[in-house]
């Protein structure tokens, strides 16, 4: 009972602090502090509720147990991370985004292809492509190559559609200006159209980061060597060692956020001129 009361008190205290902070003038400090306090409050409440209601750790382990497990099995987690995130997701992401980018630049030269490929690409991007996973696992074997292949297929179409759209961003006036400078196709592409397309390209890249990890993990459910995050999750669920599953999820969350954050940082550096990146006054 005291655990539950503690949960309520923590909730009230966290909300009160946030309420006070949120109604003060906006600074970098409050912008970071408020969500952090919110997250910490949630974790504390989770801990209290699990103890208070005596939920079996098989169902929902408390955060402290997950943290202990995380620290205790860093070697296993690191091995899985290398297998799934670096070998599977990252290599697939680079191949997929790279080939989609090249394809988009090629398609861009022909208006006929553009009008044909854009609707089809948009359609395919909305399909449950993850279903390709069992087929690709069959083609490329159980190791990371098949995971990379799934990732390639998953990130390809969002990237293609965004890049093709981005390359159409420049208006006639700007292109005419390039022509008055006697700039050829290559110079126009490099100096005007690619920079103008960057916000769209980064949009595609950011969508791809999450898809890449999801693809690599889900593909492991269809067969994998005896390491990898998806493999560990599905076998640990079978052994009911939920703390390890949650530790894997923490790794996945860290990898996902880190990956996304890295792309967002690069975006900030590349598209500093775009209105959405300018510092608000």
């Amino acid at each position: 009972m005291s655990w539950l009361i503690a949960a309520l008190v923590i909730w009230a205290a966290g909300w009160w602090v946030n309420n006070v902070l949120a109604h003060r003038p906006l600074t970098t400090f409050t912008q970071i502090a408020v969500p952090v306090i919110f997250g910490a409050t949630l974790i504390a409440i989770w801990e209290c509720v699990v103890h208070g209601l005596e939920i079996a750790p098989v169902l929902l382990p408390p955060p402290s147990m997950i943290a202990a497990r995380f620290v205790a099995s860093t070697d296993v987690l690191w091995e899985d991370f290398v297998q799934t995130a670096l070998k599977g997701a990252l290599s697939g992401y680079i191949i997929g985004c790279g080939s989609a980018f090249l394809m988009a630049v090629l398609v861009d030269r022909s208006e006929f292809l553009q009008r044909g490929l854009l609707p089809v690409g948009n359609f395919v991007a909305a399909l449950p492509i993850i279903g390709m996973a069992p087929i690709l696992v069959m083609w490329f074997g159980f190791d990371w190559q098949s995971k990379a292949a799934v990732v390639v297929v998953m990130v390809f179409f969002p990237m293609l559609v965004n890049t093709v759209q981005g390359l159409q961003e420049t208006d006639a006036m700007q292109r005419d200006l390039m022509r008055t400078y006697a700039a050829g196709y290559g110079a126009t592409l490099l100096k005007l159209r690619l920079p103008a397309a960057m916000p769209f390209i980064f949009n595609g890249l950011k969508i791809g980061t999450t898809l890449a990890l999801i693809g690599a993990i889900v593909a492991e459910f269809f067969g994998s060597p005896v390491r990898g995050m998806g493999f560990r999750i599905s076998t640990s669920v079978g052994q009911l060692s939920m703390d390890l599953v949650w530790a894997e999820i923490v790794v996945a969350a860290l990898a996902g956020s880190g990956f996304y954050g890295a792309v967002a940082l690069i975006e900030k550096a590349v598209t500093f001129w775009h209105p959405s990146q300018r510092r608000r006054a």
Partner: peptide, 17 residues
């Protein structure tokens, strides 16, 4: 201020896992 950042962060997590 509290929830919105977490809503966005929740999507960088490969939740299907």
């Amino acid at each position: 201020m509290s929830v919105m950042p977490w809503v966005i962060a929740s999507q960088t997590i490969p939740i299907l896992a």
